[in-house]
Every structure is written in C-alpha cells, then in structure tokens.
Design a binder for these strands. Structure first.
Lengths: 146, 146
DNA sequence: CTCCATGCAAAAATTTTGCATCGAG
DNA sequence: CTCGATGCAAAATTTTTGCATGGAG
C-alpha cells in the first residue's frame, strides 16, 4: 500500500465535529484519521489495530461507538448498509438494487440502460472488472411516511 | 409483501446443480427456493426461519454451508462482498468503489461521468432516492496473478 | 463401500451493552 | 457539578468448525 494520505485535514475534522455538536478528543482524531488517511476503507477491527500503535489503551468498543457516532452525525458515510449479515442473490445476470436505508429491504432493479455505463479508464486499466452493481440508497414508501 | 414468486423453476435449479456437480437435496431446494422466491434478499437467518416451517430439523449451519456452496458454484451471487464487517467512508460526496472480490480491498472511484446516470423511472417513482453508488467487482492486480 | 450433505454441539469471531471513571467546561 | 467520552468486562449475536450419522450411487 502506498503512503497514507489525508483527504480532510484535522482542522476540517474539528470544524465538522463542532458543527455537529461533537466533542473532539485525541481518540476521535485518531479514529477519523485512520479512516480518512486510508483509501482501503478499513474495518473497525483494522482501525483498532492501527490506532493501538499510538493509543495503546484504546478499547475496541470505543472504536465501534465512535464510528457509529460519526456516521449518525454525517461525518462519515456507511459504506455497507447491509453488513449485518451476508445476503445472496439468485439473479445471476447483472442487475442493480434499491436499498432502503431505514428498513434495509433490498429490491432488484433490472434496467438495460443501467448496464451501459462506460467503465472509467482507471478502473479498466488497473483491474480485471468482473461486473458492477449500482446501489440506490433510498427511502422506501413505508419508511418515508413514518 | 406481495406473494412469493419463483424466478427460476425447480427444474432449472436442478439442471444448474447438476451442471455444477452438486447433489440436489430437499434442503437445498428449500434453501434455494427461499432465496429465489423472495425479492427481499433474505439473510441466512431469515432463510432458516422460513425453512423451518417445512423442514423443522434443518440446522442453521446447514443454511450457511449451503449458501456458501451455492455461491462458490455460481448458483447465487454474493450481494454483500464486504459483509464481514461494517465499513465507513470519510468521503461524503457521492462516489463509487472498486471491491476486490478476493482480498476485499476497497478503493474509491471518483468520476463525474458516473454521476450522470439517469435514475430508472420505477426507482424515482416508488421511492425517495438519496443517492447511489456503483460497486465495481474486480480482481485487483495482486489477486489476479495469484 | 465411498462420498458428501446433514444435524448437532462447540468454538470462534464479531458486535453490543452496562457500568464505573475521568476530564472538560 | 454535570455531561458525555472512554475503557473494561461481560453479554449477545453471528458465523465457522469438527465430528458422527445417514442416504445415494
């Protein structure tokens, strides 16, 4: 992996925390930094392992709690709305999904127009693309009214 | 929820099992059916709960093992390549991702061209769309050579 | 007989919770 | 002093594994 970068400087993080009414602590800076400074979207476990180098007494539970706090306040986005459990798909042709961010229902979206996306050159050059799938993050009708 | 549908008839399932060299058992039919007959992409737990009605002695472990077998043989696709754990994203503007299906590394893809997808009418009409994200399933360079 | 799918129980791994403490304001 | 963030330990949940059994070919 290349060297760590920082997409958002600390000051920016602090500013966003304050805007969200969150206190800024060394742990939080470290956690945010581990995420923002790493393009690989590390898991809480991975964040924990990395952070322990500089914060040997931090608890894994703190990492979980903090990341959850961040996401509830919009400082980070949840990349895996369905992570709670594996999900499988019987439709093996390429297609897409709507995921209700609230109730986590998943609905198929089959639309030929969506299958004609031109792969970015960077993606095509650097990897072997097996396929792609678009996740529409939505509020379904029933969650919308509530 | 509407009534269950069956996207792939049993005969088709049997044919595909045979093609993959898998034996066909009542449990497997039931499991496949629970997935294929349900548009909501149920979790293994949910499949288990549903199947117990007709197969009271089935074990949850069997459901996990079977779904894993199915996906390794291409009978179903893995909808959640990152499910093992939550992942967060510090980049809160809309963007996309490459996910290596083997090592699970996630890399950002920022490309304005990808942000101009026309939302399918069905999606726009039925829900409030908060955003979307394209997941490119790829083999990264290092996994590709191995 | 051999092989593999199954069920069961145990183990492992992951995530959440309760609670006491600490520190900033 | 008060409140929220933290660390620790325990609990809960989810997933995997080992092993004995049983049926199909």
């Amino acid at each position: 992996m290349g060297k760590a970068r920082r997409r958002v400087p600390v000051e920016e993080f602090v500013r966003r925390c304050k805007a969200a009414g969150l206190s800024v602590t060394p742990q939080r800076i470290a956690i945010y930094d581990a995420i923002a400074g790493n393009p690989s979207h590390p898991s809480p476990e991975a964040v924990y392992r990395r952070i322990r180098l500089t914060h040997p007494t931090i608890a894994l539970a703190t990492v979980y709690k903090t990341l959850d706090t961040f996401s509830r306040h919009g400082l980070v986005a949840l990349l895996t709305p369905m992570h709670e459990t594996v999900r499988y798909d019987p439709l093996t042709i390429q297609h897409h999904h709507m995921i209700c961010v609230k109730c986590k229902e998943v609905v198929d979206v089959v639309d030929p127009a969506l299958d004609e996306i031109r792969l970015p050159t960077r993606v095509r050059r650097s990897t072997k693309v097996l396929g792609y799938s678009i996740h529409f993050n939505v509020l379904c009708p029933s969650c919308r009214v509530r």
